[in-house]
């Protein structure tokens, strides 16, 4: 991939993939002190994220569960430098910190060494409010940082209100099923990772992960940090409180999100798309997609669904797999036969 001669980029840390669970280091950089819910997958994402990154890392955290429930005055759980950033500012946070390191190292004001910069946000901070700043930051090829979006599909910290990343029909405190309207939230979940991958020609790495597949998720994060430039990782995190299920099935729900085809796992590395894990098996027809009913009916937020609602949900997922140009990534459909370009 051609890079402009005017782009000046510093070296990154060498972060080879962990070759198996047993090779993952024992050191923890996100430890006790937080007060996230039992079964919180997002807290697990934080733990795996800094484990994958290692100690020479700066973490900047947007407002959300992983701020309010995670980092309390006098009992921080972070063993790497961490700073709160505003809800919509993860993109600017990563960019600003990376620019500061780069300038000071170049000008001899700071010891030169590759330092990881990770700015994380929830779906409210990333898919809604902060999308503009994330998009802008991904166009700056000169700086090394990762934006990690932990997506628990609602504003879970503020009482479970719907976000642009909440799935169709879900019961949230802003979309309760009622006597007149069974489905208050009739918007389909935003395709954040696909949009960011497609819309940022100089971003070298975008991936979707789910920490039910922990090793894969950590290796995606390591790749995102090592490849250089601004990168984006989108993690789907089952949330016992917001999704309304027994905490012990958190991991199982993450797996079901992938095996039902609702949450495709993929990476776009240097503009090459690769489907990952079970998603790849589905695409290769080595694994049959599970019905979405198995995923939906385990969650209280879909308890009001009728058969019609489940069928509609299934049809949308089928459509994604059968008609999208690239399933889960590019929502434009192939329509070669009906293709009638406007007359010249």
């Amino acid at each position: 991939m051609a890079i402009s001669p005017f782009v000046e980029i510093d070296a990154t840390q060498k972060l080879d993939p962990f070759k198996g669970v047993k090779k993952i280091p024992l050191e923890e950089y996100f430890t006790s002190g937080h007060r996230t819910c039992q079964g919180c997958e997002s807290a697990l994402v934080m733990k795996m994220m800094v484990k994958a990154a290692g100690p020479r890392t700066i973490v900047l955290g947007s407002t959300g569960c992983m701020y309010v429930a995670n980092t309390t005055y006098y009992s921080t759980s972070w063993v790497v430098p961490w700073m709160h950033t505003q809800l919509g500012s993860s993109g600017s946070a990563g960019l600003g910190a990376a620019a500061a390191l780069k300038a000071q190292m170049r000008k001899g004001k700071m010891k030169k060494e590759p330092i990881n910069v990770i700015a994380f946000c929830g779906d409210g901070g990333g898919a809604d409010m902060g999308l503009g700043a994330i998009s802008a930051s991904l166009t700056h090829p000169d700086y090394n940082f990762l934006i990690l979006l932990y997506d628990n599909e609602s504003y879970a910290n503020t009482d479970i209100q719907l976000s642009g990343s909440t799935p169709y029909g879900a019961h949230t405190t802003f979309s309760p099923p009622g006597k007149m309207k069974r489905i208050m939230h009739h918007r389909w979940k935003k395709n954040t990772a696909g949009m960011l991958a497609a819309g940022h020609p100089e971003c070298k790495y975008v991936s979707t992960i789910c920490m039910s597949y922990g090793l894969l998720g950590m290796n995606c994060i390591r790749k995102a940090l090592a490849i250089g430039g601004p990168t984006f990782v989108h993690s789907l995190d089952p949330c016992p409180k917001g999704w309304d299920y027994d905490p012990y099935i958190s991991h199982e729900l993450g797996e079901l999100a992938v095996t039902t085809g609702i949450w495709p796992l993929y990476e776009v590395e240097n503009h090459t798309l690769r489907l990952l894990g079970k998603t790849r098996e589905i695409a290769d027809k080595r694994y049959v997609r599970q019905p979405v009913r198995d995923y939906l009916m385990k969650q209280g937020r879909f308890a009001h669904f009728t058969k019609d609602d489940i069928d509609y949900f299934q049809s949308k997922v089928d459509e994604m797999w059968q008609k999208w140009l690239i399933p889960g990534v590019i929502p434009m459909m192939k329509d070669l036969e009906g293709d009638a370009p406007p007359a010249e």
Partner: peptide, 19 residues
């Protein structure tokens, strides 16, 4: 930057990192 909001957020974080 892409907005004044980002403009001031970027320098805020840069200053915290010593710039």
């Amino acid at each position: 930057a892409d907005s004044e909001n980002s403009q001031f957020e970027i320098v805020k974080h840069a200053s915290v990192c010593g710039a």
